[in-house]
């Protein structure tokens, strides 16, 4: 899923200081699972914003709503009739949701309420870690199912570097060395000989480097 982290409330308050009618808009997908932008977080943020406004002696209306998704037009259409009441929206969706909402409601300021961080998994409640950088050309078949692009600090295709120490990365003893994981996994798969296969230069044109990306699927297009 897309993992996001909460933005400091001070930062959101600063963005909203000139607005009087605000909608705090959550998303029921990834940001709900990572407890950054679901219904609960919408409630807490809205309450904090209301108290802050009240204390400053400002008359501000703050409403709460959580959509099924903010990355699909059909769900964003649900606020079409009510959006005019607001002069600003704080979206607690990921960066995709914030932008898609802004595209649908072109004359409405949409502020981000979370920091979108990575594509990752839940290690345990409250701990999420990165797994994928969506480079557009998956090489997991050759690396034992562990991604050096996302998980090696130097994204080495032929690692590990000389900084790998007792299974940890040179940048931080809390970070696993991706290539240690790859070697361990190749061993478990009885494929350690594959380690010596040279990984060719990567075609980064499918990555961010190639500019904004697009997937068109003729087979499912309507």
């Amino acid at each position: 899923m897309i993992v996001a982290d909460k933005k400091p409330i001070e930062e959101i308050i600063e963005c909203l200081k000139d607005h009087k009618n605000i909608l705090v808009l959550g998303c029921n997908e990834c940001v709900t699972v990572c407890e950054a932008g679901g219904k609960k977080e919408v409630g807490v943020l809205a309450s904090a914003l209301r108290m802050n406004a009240r204390k400053e002696g400002k008359e501000v209306k703050i409403d709460e709503l959580t959509l099924e998704r903010q990355c699909d037009r059909e769900y964003l259409d649900e606020i079409r009739d009510s959006i005019d009441q607001y002069d600003a929206v704080v979206s607690l969706a990921c960066g995709v949701g914030v932008q898609f909402t802004a595209e649908q409601y072109h004359d409405k300021p949409i502020y981000p309420g979370v920091n979108t961080t990575f594509l990752g998994a839940t290690e345990e409640r409250g701990v999420w870690t990165e797994r994928c950088q969506a480079c557009g050309q998956c090489i997991l078949a050759t690396t034992g199912g562990i991604c050096p692009v996302a998980r090696c600090a130097k994204r080495l295709f032929n690692g590990p570097c000389g900084g790998s120490t007792t299974g940890k990365c040179e940048i931080n003893a809390e970070v696993d060395c991706a290539w240690q994981l790859i070697v361990d996994r190749l061993k478990a798969l009885e494929r350690l000989d594959d380690y010596e296969k040279l990984c060719p230069l990567k075609d980064w044109s499918t990555d961010r480097a190639g500019g904004p990306r697009k997937v068109v699927r003729e087979d499912v297009k309507q």
Partner: peptide
């Protein structure tokens, strides 16, 4: 923490 931030 939140209450401190909003001045309560």
């Amino acid at each position: 923490k939140i209450l401190d931030t909003v001045g309560v």
